[in-house]
């Protein structure tokens, strides 16, 4: 009994001096990054246009090698692959989640939609790419969507749908969108920079049904669904989105410039990451 108490007491007091820390901070997405062309030809500012945001802790920023600020990278070893940026840790604000229909594979990010009707309105009205069921028919109402999800996941509650619920972003006083992030178990290196990028949804005005996809998601991988006449993959983020981000950043995406406020000198710092560099914005649409 006594040794157990001693061990417990030591366990509370002993500092393992692990280099990993949880880094807490804020990511700010300018309103311009959430302002896109809608299917009706008008532009709108809508937080549902905010794609997944990839955040990493890096040794520094390279402003020369690419057309946008990019983390410092190691040597290029193979011809068609950029050098590894060797992040010390990473996280995302919003992640890919499969939303019950094959037509939504790689098109849905968590923390962007409050309910089924919210999604139907975004894909149908805003993008002009209505959600389709397994027979290719447009899904008309939220209860049909809900029932399909319950069938697909053998679920009984909307709480089991990770792609619905609380929204990540809120409008701040400057009119931009702001969200808190936690970068867990990050190797703390004094002076490291939190850098990130937002994968903006593809908008294809000439063919709106192709809109809504993301370049950082691989529709050929992820969990496989194979039942009766349906066979598809749910899609999954590319595993090296933080190590070699330039492979997935295209015109229209927004990246952080690596400003001083994103530098971490102490584990208690609260870095602010502004995705204030629109890469080729205006050329994409």
């Amino acid at each position: 009994m006594a040794p157990t108490i001693l061990i417990l007491a030591l366990g509370c007091a002993y500092n393992e001096e692990l280099p990993e820390k949880d880094i807490l901070g804020t990511v700010i997405v300018p309103a311009a990054a959430a302002t896109r062309l809608q299917a009706d030809g008008t532009t709108a500012t809508d937080p549902r246009f905010i794609g997944p945001i990839f955040l990493g802790a890096y040794s520094g920023i390279d402003t020369v090698s690419f057309g946008y600020p990019h983390p410092s990278m190691g040597p290029i070893v193979t011809a068609d692959t950029p050098g590894d940026a060797f992040p010390y840790g990473g996280t995302t604000v919003g992640r890919y989640d499969f939303a019950c229909y094959e037509s939504l594979a790689c098109k849905v990010v968590t923390g962007r939609f409050s309910d089924y009707n919210d999604m139907l309105e975004y894909f149908g009205t805003v993008l002009g790419s209505p959600i389709q069921d397994d027979n290719g028919a447009d899904v008309a109402n939220g209860s049909t969507f809900q029932q399909a999800c319950y069938d697909y996941f053998y679920a009984t509650s909307d709480q089991e749908m990770a792609f619905l619920g609380d929204l990540d972003f809120a409008l701040n006083a400057d009119g931009d969108f702001e969200a808190a992030f936690v970068m867990p178990h990050t190797v703390f290196v004094e002076g490291m920079t939190i850098w990130g990028w937002m994968d903006a949804p593809e908008i294809v005005p000439a063919n709106p049904t192709e809109s809504g996809g993301f370049s950082s998601c691989d529709v050929s991988t992820g969990r496989e669904f194979d039942q009766y006449d349906e066979n598809f993959r749910e899609g999954r983020v590319y595993f090296d989105a933080l190590n070699t981000p330039s492979q997935y950043i295209y015109a229209g995406d927004w990246v952080a410039s690596g400003a001083e406020e994103a530098v971490v000198n102490s584990p208690d710092d609260k870095p602010v990451v502004r995705l204030d560099f629109g890469f080729g914005v205006g050329e994409a649409e």
């Binding site: 520094g60 193979t78 010390y88 290196v189 004094e190 002076g191």
Partner: peptide, 16 residues
Amino acid sequence: VYDDPAGVEHELAFNE
């Protein structure tokens, strides 16, 4: 071994 700008060492695999 690659030393990044912050002085942290990373092992590189050059086997192609």
